[in-house]
Design a protein around this nucleic acid. Structure first.
Lengths: 238, 238
DNA sequence: GTCTATATTCAGATAGAC
DNA sequence: GTCTATCTGAATATAGAC
């Protein structure tokens, strides 16, 4: 905040450039020369300010994930306070979890669609240190939401809920990240490449019903058998 | 088939090693020295047999996708012949499309889970030539299945079907590819790392109900308004 | 803090002997 | 077809002047 800044924020310019280029070309596919070139700073500045390319990537994410994690916890706290100890509605939980994410897409100062797409892509990056980093960053929030879903869907086996959480994350990530990848595959133009509020709003209207439908789908056969022994009439999961 | 082979198939050994390493470390993260090392062949052999690293990647996929594409078309042909000109059930279409994919996971000679995970991961690789390659390979099959879904769900706007197709692909890809990525995130062990029939069967039982639930979810608000003007009682999509 | 110049490593690719 | 040896370029990172 109160730094003696000489240039218009070299550090910030590097983070912005890296965010965009990692999104576009992936971590391994982006060189530090590309980053410093786009940022208009000297090559050595990255190592001076961040120490290494790995540390730069971590900082790119930390800058945004701090807000996302805090906001997701806050949204869940608010829901639970309102419910006064009762179980939450599955749709409200998804709204808190994914709605918060999509709010980032609508706000440039939080990263906008650029960061959302970077996030979706990076979850599948194979580099070990990236996976380890995300595991640490996400652990607390995921744990809280998992527990909320367990309480919201008591008749669904926890293992099944975890799988469906997994599948919802995947669908959302692809919807965000895979724009060109999968829109080429589906052979249709999709209107998400531009930043701004429209893309995130459309995404929300389209994806949330799909996720909720998947989350509340009938249980697979082999689990229905287990459940029927303890409860009558469990055809629907919720 | 009738080659004058000196060694136990250098070409095939390279393809197998590349398939596994690309799956594990990604395209950019895998060097030709890693590949030839694992295959136990000379470094120069890759360029001799395939010409370049790019061409090697394409051949890794072509070897498997030829079967997948043909089988997916065959499965759809069979369904349409059986329906005698009528519309198909959405569940049958998904079964043909994703069931065929998962059949590969159960059969080592078709690539097994290794290839399935490679496929899921590679769809999000950002390199341009990879996206272009997939677009070409998938075009025909996607077109046929899209049309089948349009007919199967006449009350759902085509644009919405395309989105949900997109979302189903994403969920399935993550379920397959993101094993360690997302199982770390969800904080639970998932039993998919090993090859073999069990993993693919479990996957099928778990994922298919989710996909069908998403595909048939209620339409988003803004599309309900459009549809209600032409048809009564369209609360459910199917 | 910023720059130039460079150290070091490793990538993909190829020439040419066998 | 397979090998050794090597070319060429590009990557990350750093030393040291300013």
């Amino acid at each position: 905040m109160s730094e003696t800044r000489t240039q218009p924020d070299t550090r910030e310019r590097i983070l912005d450039a890296a965010e965009r280029l990692f999104m576009e070309s992936g971590y391994e596919g982006t060189s530090m020369r590309m980053i410093t070139g786009e940022a208009g700073v000297n090559l050595a500045a990255v190592n001076y300010h961040f120490g290494s390319k790995e540390a730069l990537l971590r900082e790119v994410f930390r800058r945004r994930l701090n807000w996302l994690n805090a906001e997701r916890l806050r949204a869940l706290d608010a829901l639970e306070a309102e419910a006064q100890g009762g179980a939450l509605k599955p749709s409200a939980i998804l709204e808190a979890f994914f709605g918060t994410l999509l709010k980032m897409g609508r706000d440039q100062s939080l990263g906008g669609m650029t960061f959302l797409r970077l996030l979706g892509r990076t979850l599948t990056e194979p580099a070990d240190f990236i996976r380890a980093f995300f595991a640490g960053e996400y652990a607390e929030v995921i744990e809280r939401y998992k527990k909320a879903l367990f309480r919201a869907l008591p008749e669904v086996p926890p293992e099944e809920i975890i799988w469906r959480f997994h599948l919802m994350l995947g669908a959302m990530s692809y919807a965000i990240a895979g724009t060109d990848a999968l829109q080429v595959i589906t052979g249709c133009e999709v209107d998400m490449n531009n930043d701004g509020p429209d893309a995130a709003q459309l995404l929300e209207a389209r994806v949330m019903p799909f996720l909720l439908g998947g989350l509340r789908a009938p249980l697979p056969q082999f689990q229905l058998l287990q459940v029927q022994q303890s409860k009558p009439e469990p055809t629907k999961a919720a």
